[in-house]
């Protein structure tokens, strides 16, 4: 499975668990408009840490916080590379 597919699956799962109505998951989708609140994002980040062993947002202090879903995925893809 690619990093991208793991992330998308994680988002869908957390969205269901948290009973969220999610917007279509496109790269240009701003995370704040995705239907995910910060708790959902926190759960997704923890899940990705478990599944991929990656937590790029904690890895350094000067990480620029991703605005769109595409940037979010890119951050993980770069961390995995």
């Amino acid at each position: 499975m690619t990093v991208r597919s793991v992330i998308l699956e994680q988002i869908t799962r957390v969205g269901e668990q948290q009973r969220r109505q999610l917007a279509p998951l496109t790269d240009s989708l701003p995370l704040l408009d995705s239907g995910l609140d910060s708790l959902c994002l926190a759960i997704i980040v923890a899940g990705l840490d478990d599944e991929l062993g990656l937590d790029p947002l904690s890895a350094s202090d000067d990480v620029e916080f991703p605005v769109t879903l595409g940037e979010f995925i890119k951050l993980y893809e770069n961390a995995a590379a």
Binding site: S38, L39, A42, V45
Partner: peptide, 12 residues
């Protein structure tokens, strides 16, 4: 608690 970059911590 488990440290988390979004909310400071999450519950485990």
């Amino acid at each position: 608690a488990r440290k988390n970059p979004i909310t400071g911590a999450v519950v485990v």
